[in-house]
Structure formats: structure tokens, C-alpha cells
Design a protein around this nucleic acid. Structure first.
Lengths: 341, 341
DNA sequence: TTGAAAGCGCTAACAG
DNA sequence: CTGTTAGCGCTTTCAA
């Protein structure tokens, strides 16, 4: 319904010159006389002329839009990464087209198809937790559509990736809990086919070894990340003949649920049970006790993903994986020692 | 870098017919013979032909994109509304172009300009908390660019709006606290020029009256919604000669901060002090005690805003304000009575 | 029943 | 130094 936007033609007819002259004047083409150039640019500014991206896109076969697919929008981790991507993209004159997979592979595939319909120039993606096959991404790669993964990644030999140092993060958690005096550390991991699950399990095993603790298979469980399952797993830990005295989980949602379940059972945190989260959701400091977590550089992950995206656009063979450092923020939920003093 | 997408021309040359025939066949134009139509459609399907939105857009002067401006992405309220908008838009074949104002009027204006450059067909906006002048929106209206506001709104005679029933929400809070036995209820509001602040203050006053409580100006404060100011106001309440025994705030961020400050001072919630939030951030149930809040139908706000947007596209004079009901979810932070039993 | 041509806004090669 | 023209992909008269 909007009024027709101003076009080069309008400027041209107003100045009684040709369209191409206007076009050239606006880009300071040396062929155009300085006075004319100035006159054209002044009129364009006065009229708030904005080039039509559709026309440009049609001509150049590019939309200057990046499709971004995340499992959901409402998790702080993702929205923060998106903000980072948006910031970097904006500075390069690109827009972001957002799509949610709602943690479903089917919706992920649908999102890709939608973004393709919108002719995005490429995509930045965090896999859904269901995604165990990668055909839909292979197809993008075959069509030479620039692609970057972050956090939950795959096909790392073909696609640039940005990930947190998951292995090291978990090692930090284990050693921190050990130092605080916890001995039997349980880990609720995510679906086995996810890269982040595998890396964190590796970190768990190596962390235990480094800390001189034994690995007990009973203390390592995979979780679909649903509330009910987090509760079920927590309960199953508690009834073990030799139960854990500390626990950490693949993300904060799960660990918040665990905390709630522990508190419901009258178990004291951190006196009886150490608890550590993963991702540092915004509200970690509002829980009681405040949650010790691994903090991810979410904004930087977004910036880096966008940076790699533009590299990938320039060089189709580019496929580096960037690993970003995380930080363990020790809060109350794991401070057994302090309490004892 | 991506391979050139398939065009009508490709299909036409493959079938040795003209482009316009292919175009017509694909939209089941009656002029085209059934067999040809079938043949064309089969080939198009086999080749996964997707019409080029840039070409369509250029022709029809529309991008099928809606610009959405929110104060930030990482607040659950906004990301949830966005999800709702996205859902509705997707079903109508529209995409969403996202922009954050970061609660700054300057960035809001910049976002509008950016979205205009991208030639969105219109915008759905929640005002930044700084926004006290509306020239930038008046300009959109003058240019007949469809616009819808949600939550924080303005220019309601000209623009369709979706808001929560703020007045009634606050009345619910006041009467709930009164019933729980609290007598001096303080309210930390937002900037005075925001519609939500005004409505909630109205609800505060009428709620007090209905509950037979007296209004004490000392107990009503405006807040910029920054952490430091929330702490300062909390402290100022506590040193009053006649301090409040309950408090609620314009949003959950502020009230979480207040809770932390109260706890830090050893004040017991809800025994000594009742606390109620506004917006029901995802993590309200993870705080300790669990936070009583007003729940907003965020998803529905998004759906409705999108619905109004399409109405506005069809009818430029349309400017209805839709008011959605909220719910008070009573949790521990306000349950004085239960505790006493 | 089908094809040719114009035009949406823009750039770039080619003329003048 | 400036104008003309073709073409990006598509729809839509107008012609055949």
C-alpha cells in the first residue's frame, strides 16, 4: 500500500538528465563533471533517495540477506548470538532473516527451504537437537551456498564452524568441583549424536582422569533436555547405591530443573550437593543459591560466525573451525569449602 | 557465490516454448492447454523451480517482508512475541526482518531507516524505553507505510496496537497482595512517558482505592529499569519512616534485582515482604522463593500484532487497539497467608 | 492457444 | 563528459 519509492528516474527527470548519469553521479564516477555530481547528490540527499535493493539484487543476483536458523529464539544463548551476528552483518550492509527450528529436524529442513525461497545469500545455523542426518546441508554445500555452523555443528571439513571449547569447559567444571571437595560428579549430557555432547563427554572423561577421580558409568546420562527427563534422571541418580555428591548438566534449563528437584527433596545445595550449569543463562544469579556456570562468549560467537560467513562467501573452500574460550564463574551452588569455614 | 537459481527462461528453453507460456502454465491460466500445463508443472516440480522473489518484488513493489523492531532480543517477552509474529507471517508467505533498538531512540530511528532501505512492506514495533518523541513514526504514517505497535505504544488514533490489560493487571496485583495481608504496597514504575507506565499507575491508584488502601506518594517511584536504580529505589523504600511491606515492579528484571537486594539485607520473602513481578520471565519459577507474576500472553500478542498488520495493509484507515487479558500467577513470593498457617 | 514486448529500478558496456 | 541500450526474472497487455 505504501507510496512508490523514489527512483533514479524521478531524480533524472527532475534534473532533465539521463538515468545513467544520475547513477554514475551518485557513485562519484570520474566521468561526471564535479558540478553535476554535486547537484545530483544534493537532490538525492534532499529527497532521501535510497537505491532499490530489489533492483540491485536482481541485477547482482544477491539479496544481502543472511538466513539464520536457531533451535529457538527465547533461549538467551541463541538470542545473544543472533545479536552478535546482526551487529556484524549490519556493519557490512547485510540483513538477517531469522528462522526457528524449534529443535525439530523437520522444521529445520522447512526453514532452509523457506530461506532459499527468500533467496538469502547464505546461512548461519545451529543444529536442532534432533538433527542426526545432514543431507539438507549437503545439498546447500553442493549448490555452493555459503554456510556456517555455530555451537552444534557437523560436516566440519566442509563448513566453517564456531564452537566453544567444550572439552576444556567440562574439565574446568570437574576440577573445580573436585577442588571444592566433591568426589562423585554426575553429568547429564545431551543426545549422543550432537557434537557438543560428544566433546563434553570427552572433557568429562579426561577431566576425571586429570583430577584423579574414577569414571562411574552410572553417573553419566544422556538427556533429551526435556523437563520430565531431567527430573527422571535426577531421581535415578539419587537412588543409586553409591549416589553422586555433585552434578552438572549440558545446559542451564536442565540444571535449573535438577536444582528444583533437589530442593524439593530437601537436599541442601551446596552443602550436600554441588551443582554447576552450562551456558550461563541470564538468570543464573537470580536462583537460590546462585548458580555456578560456564559462561560462553555468546556475542563473540555471533560476531565470529558472521565474520566466517563473509570469509566463506569470498573463498568457497574455506572451512576453518574456530574454538572460543569459556569461563567458569564460581557462584554459591558449588562452594562447599566456603560453607565449611 | 551461489550457483544461479533456476529461472522461467531455463524451463522455457528446455521445453522449447516461450517464457510467458511457462509463467501462465504455472498459475493454471485457462488459456493454456491442460497437457502443456501438466508438462510444465511437472518439469518445474522436478527441477525444484522457485520463483525469484526479487523479480516479483520489483514488479509488484513489495518485498513480503515485515520489519520488526524490539528493544532487545534477549528478553523472553520480546523473543516470544517475535516467535508469534513469525508464525503468523510465515503462514501468509511473509518474512520478518529483525532490528533491535537496544532501548535507545536513536537506534530505533536508525533501525527504521535500515528497514526502509530493505524496503520492508511495513513494520511492527515496540517502542524503546527512551522514545518520547514520535516524529519518526509520523513520517512512516505519512508515507502510508503500514505500522503496528505492541506493548509500548503511541499514536493510537492512527496506528493499530496490541497491548496487555495493564490497568487490570495492576489491580489484580494490588488486590492479591491485600488479600495476602499486605498493607503498604510499593510500586516501581517505568519512565513516565511510556504508555505502559501510565496505564499501570492508573491501575495502581484504582486498585488501591478498590482495596480500601490509601495512596502514599512515597511508595510510587519511576525507574529507568537499570539495575543500579532499582537498588537505589529499593533502599530508599526501606529507610522510609513508614516503609512498605510489599512491592511490585514494572518488569521482572527490576523485581529480581529488588529481591536480591532484600535478601542481601536479610529481609524474608514473603514473611516480611511480599514481592510480585510483571511479565513472567521464563525463570520466575527458578528464583527462590518462586516469583508471583503477571503472565502476559506473549505468543498471542505476536499473533495478534501480525493479524492487525495484515488488516492495516488492506485498510490504511484501520487503527484499532486490541487489549489482551493477563493472568496473575500466585507463587511463593507473595504468599504471606499460607506461610502463617 | 501461444508468443512477443514492455516495464518494474538499476548497472555497465557501448556510442556519441 | 553524457546518453542509449540491454538485461537481471517476472507478469501482463497486445498480437498473432
Amino acid at each position: 500500500m505504501a507510496k512508490r519509492h523514489l527512483s533514479l528516474k524521478d531524480l533524472a527527470s527532475e534534473l532533465n538528465i539521463s538515468i545513467s548519469t544520475v547513477s554514475r553521479a551518485l557513485k562519484n564516477h570520474p566521468d561526471i563533471s564535479p558540478e553535476l555530481t554535486r547537484k545530483v547528490q544534493e537532490l538525492a540527499a534532499a529527497r532521501h533517495y535510497v537505491p532499490n535493493p530489489l533492483a540491485m539484487g536482481l541485477l547482482k543476483q544477491e539479496t544481502k540477506m543472511i538466513g539464520v536458523i536457531v533451535p529457538d529464539l527465547v533461549t538467551h544463548f541463541y538470542s545473544s548470538v543472533i545479536s552478535g551476528i546482526e551487529e556484524y552483518a549490519k556493519n557490512r550492509g547485510y540483513f538477517i532473516l531469522l528462522a526457528s527450528s524449534y529443535e525439530s529436524m523437520e522444521k529445520e529442513i522447512e526453514s532452509i527451504s523457506n530461506l532459499l525461497k527468500a533467496r538469502v545469500d547464505g546461512m548461519i545455523v545451529c543444529l536442532s537437537k534432533e538433527t542426526s542426518r545432514f543431507d539438507h546441508f549437503l545439498q546447500l554445500i553442493e549448490n555452493e551456498i555459503p554456510l556456517v555452523f555455530f555451537d552444534r555443528v557437523c560436516l566440519t571439513e566442509l563448513v566453517p564452524c564456531v564452537v566453544a571449547d567444550n572439552r576444556n569447559s567440562v574439565e574446568k567444571i570437574v576440577s573445580h568441583l573436585k577442588e571444592e571437595g566433591f568426589k562423585r560428579i554426575a553429568f547429564i549430557s545431551g543426545p549422543a549424536y550432537l557434537s557438543i555432547s560428544q566433546e563434553r563427554i570427552e572433557g568429562y572423561l579426561s577431566g576425571l582422569k586429570k583430577s584423579g577421580l574414577e569414571f562411574d558409568p552410572d553417573l553419566l546420562q544422556s538427556c533429551s533436555m526435556l523437563t520430565e527427563e531431567a527430573i527422571r534422571i535426577t531421581d535415578s541418580f539419587l537412588v543409586l547405591p553409591n549416589p553422586p555428591d555433585a552434578i552438572f548438566a549440558i545446559n542451564d534449563m536442565v540444571i535449573f530443573t535438577v536444582m528444583k528437584e533437589l530442593k524439593r527433596r530437601g537436599i541442601k545445595i551446596p552443602e550436600d550437593f554441588g551443582v554447576v550449569g552450562f551456558a550461563d543463562e541470564f538468570h543464573a544469579t537470580f536462583s537460590s543459591p546462585e548458580l555456578t556456570t560456564i559462561t560462553h562468549p555468546t556475542w563473540e560467537i555471533g560476531l565470529k560466525a558472521a565474520e566466517l560467513f563473509f570469509k566463506k562467501m569470498e573463498d568457497p573452500t574455506f572451512a576453518e573451525t574456530v574454538v572460543l574460550k569459556t569461563t567458569l564463574v564460581a557462584r554459591e551452588s558449588s562452594k562447599k569449602l566456603k560453607i565449611k569455614n
